[in-house]
Amino acid sequence: MANPNSDLRTPLSKARGNGASGHGTEHVIHQRALAVGLGIGFAYCAFSILLGTNLSYGAMTEWFHSALNSTIMALVVICSAFHFALGVQVVIEDYIHKATTKIILTLGTNFLAAIIAMCGVFTILKIYLGA
């Protein structure tokens, strides 16, 4: 650029935060927000389980009988599933350029994420309610 101070973007364009595609900012922000929640939840579950139980069937069902533990584990599963879907979508978009393959793979990733999240929540609920 001839003049380094020149800026072709309008203030409104900057405030909206969108690039040429007109969308996608929320993708970046969701990925960061999910990452923060996931990091905190993972640290809680990992240390609570590894330091407080012996990983046996009895100890683990007891761990899941706590509403706090079950809630945080369910949130970890949900955040993981969405973080996974958004992350893998970026990888697919970077390497797959054929439209139909890209759409099928992205759709498949999102379906898998939905199955993972639902499966996790229902099984955690089953353990919590006393399976």
């Binding site: 683990m60 992350g87 893998v88 993972i116 099984t123 399976a131």
Partner: peptide, 22 residues
């Protein structure tokens, strides 16, 4: 990040096995 998908599947398998019984 891609490898962590395996971790997520392992976590779900672990929870499912716990819910399924001893």
């Amino acid at each position: 990040g891609v490898a962590n998908s395996v971790a997520l599947l392992l976590l779900i398998a672990w929870i499912c096995s716990l819910a399924d019984g001893e």
